[in-house]
């Protein structure tokens, strides 16, 4: 999945970060693996999260929530060390619907961090990371320790 080595402490740090966020708990988000400036997360299909009752497909907002969370986590996991972050903006492209009943995965990478802004890209998939459900490009704030 990822070529980078995943130090267990980064994965544990990402899990600690998600555990205290009420929305992530309510949606059942989990950290699969994390490393320097990247994270792999997942979310189980749940009928309560359906956006279109006719098809049973998850609401786009659920995909947004997973991608945004992963994006924020990737910023906090970046070695440059932001102590806190907030989303400035994000754009999501929905390439295809996520099949009902399938677990959703997301991988976010903070690929550039300046003194004040972190740039993130992420994508979400169900069965195979090659068969992308949605992509995200986002900008996040960087808060350095005083």
């Amino acid at each position: 999945m990822s070529a980078e080595a995943a130090p267990p402490d980064k994965t544990e740090a990402a899990r600690r970060f998600l555990r205290v966020l009420p929305l992530c708990c309510a949606l059942g988000m989990e950290v699969v693996e994390a490393g320097d400036g990247w994270v792999l997360t997942s979310l189980d299909y749940d009928p309560r999260f359906v956006g279109d009752p006719a098809t049973g497909v998850l609401h786009g907002g659920v995909v947004t929530a997973l991608l945004d969370t992963s994006g924020g986590a990737s910023v906090l996991l970046h070695p440059a060390g932001s102590v806190s972050t907030a989303t400035i903006d994000l754009r999501i492209d929905y390439l295809r619907p996520a099949e009902p009943g399938q677990r959703l995965f997301a991988r976010a990478e903070c690929y550039r961090m300046t003194r004040t802004v972190a740039f993130v890209r992420a994508h979400a998939w169900t069965r195979s990371p090659e068969d992308v459900v949605a992509t995200m490009a986002g900008a996040f704030t960087v808060e350095r320790p005083a």
Partner: peptide, 24 residues
Amino acid sequence: DEKLIGNPALPALHGGAIGSFLEI
């Protein structure tokens, strides 16, 4: 609702909750 929070320290609504709200 408390479950919409994404930053418990501030506290602030989660960006994903806000994005979901706007898309709905």
